[in-house]
Amino acid sequence: MTRYFTADHEWLVVEGDIATVGITDYAQSQLGDITFVELPAVGASLAKGDSASVVDSVKAASDVYAPVSGAVTEVNPALEEAPELVNSAPEGEGWLWKMTLSDAGELDGLMDEAAYTAHVAGL
């Protein structure tokens, strides 16, 4: 299963026609202790690059952008009680939302794991 990454430190994984979106381990390590995650509304229509979610840490509030365009189909219900899952399992249980892909061609503009690792190494 291919994991795609953005330069803004979001990841997404596509299964069928649904993408699961989250923030990367690098992102969570930069944000520090996460205390609240504001998730998009189910059904919300997102354009690539829209601010879709806000991750609140003790230090800062940070926007999470839609890595692709589509509609939100589900948000991670566990984060309401346990936002710290984004710290402990950012690329697993700490996923943020699922969405449809209105233009699968947008995936071509994203990074693969090797490219993202190089991107982070250059920061």
């Binding site: 803004d8 992102a27 800062a60 509030a61 926007d63």
Partner: peptide, 8 residues
């Protein structure tokens, strides 16, 4: 993802 507020 980007910081909208930071100590920095």
């Amino acid at each position: 993802m980007s910081d909208t507020y930071d100590l920095a």
